[in-house]
Design a protein around this nucleic acid. Structure first.
Lengths: 131, 131
DNA sequence: CTACTAGTTCAAGTTAACTTTAAGTCAAGG
DNA sequence: CCTTGACTTAAAGTTAACTTGAACTAGTAG
């Protein structure tokens, strides 16, 4: 497979694939002329990377999960603790969401006059979603 | 109040406060010499900004919520739709979390041999937490 | 009067994860 | 043989939300 086929099948732009290669996250299996050639297994690898990104791992953290030989070597402790982290984030976001729903419905003339909103303000020091 | 008192009470560094002022998110009420002077109400305003950040609004979006006179003018529709967004994010993250918990416990020799993990991979195209 | 402290400005630097751009290369079709 | 199109590289640019640095100033303590 050449890069554009991988791009199409994975949904990632070619520039991202080159970037991932530069970062050591993926490897091409050789070249045809200048062009990179990828094995089909690249798609599974990319899915794994995408999964990691969505679970909140940074690219560097993900890179650390692969052995030098390219095998994924995922530490179960890391998964556990990332899941815990995610759980914390979920709790904060849930509180936020509920507060926002309340504020959206609340009939108080100004949000500052609503006790629920004020409580929300006090508790607002927690985790962010960022997208 | 001078800037360091606001910093202390709000928990935000002075550099952030200057940055917020530059962005139009807050205003000092005057100067004593060179030094900015802030009214006590700045703290409520900062709490509101922090809340907005934590709910996933960008600083620009937050800036738009204040009228030129400085009054908060929060559109209930915006709150509602941000809450909906947050809710979507929560759902994705919850699926992620559960998948990670499973993968952390799963006895399959490689994660790729676990059907639950593979299902997780397929569904991994969704929202990210980013912290 | 002088030094010190806490503030000030403006510009540049930081971080992550990419994207864009410019200039070059190669294989294939006509 | 020459053009075309898909690919290549390396370096620079992007974005958000800040932080840091350098050079400067004003009120205050001694």
């Amino acid at each position: 497979m050449d890069i554009s086929e991988v791009a199409k099948k994975s949904g990632l732009p070619a520039s991202t694939l080159r970037y991932y290669e530069e970062k050591g996250l993926i490897r091409s299996i050789g070249r045809q002329g200048l062009k990179r050639v990828f094995p089909p297994s690249i798609l599974e690898r990319l899915a794994l990377i995408t999964l990691g990104r969505n679970a909140g791992f940074s690219l560097d953290e993900i890179a650390d999960m692969f052995t030098p030989e390219g095998k994924a070597e995922i530490d179960r402790m890391k998964l556990q603790s990332k899941a815990d982290e995610l759980n914390e984030t979920i709790n904060h976001l849930t509180a936020m969401r509920d507060g926002l729903y309340h504020a959206a419905k609340c009939p108080a003339p100004s949000h500052f006059e609503c006790p629920t909103f004020k409580k929300l303000l006090k508790r607002a020091e927690k985790a962010r979603p960022n997208k």
